[in-house]
Amino acid sequence: MRQYFMGKGRVLKIYKVCRLIIVHALLIYTPCSLAVEVITHTDASVSLTQVKDLRAIFSMRLRYWPDGSKIRVFVLPDNNALHKKFVKEKLHMFPHQLRRTWDRMTYTGTGQPPVTVNSNAEMLEKIQNTPNAIGYIEINEANK
């Protein structure tokens, strides 16, 4: 939160601390050429090597990075193919299970669901421009 109030140097500061960490540890090498990768924008030292942690983040149960800043979660719509792939491969869950958890918090006021973006491009743009963000993108396996 501190970063928002840093005066004129803020933009530079954010670019300096901005690291687009691509988490490889969880990648499942599938024969198809397109894969889904978790991306984050944070300077907190995190290792998202456990499915449990990713699940906790995307079901909005783990809400803060280790440095105390609030995690900003971005997802694609429930019926998006990449979203389905992400939920199955990275969280080992199904989209309808996540939706149930989000709905319960949304309509009882006990939590806020992730922000839904409408395309891969918008996802990338949001993650790049939002400190403490986490999301996922489609990458070409051949380029890795």
Partner: peptide, 13 residues
Amino acid sequence: TSWQQGLQKVWRD
């Protein structure tokens, strides 16, 4: 002014 942008961001998020 960046603090205002910051404020804006806080609201929106």
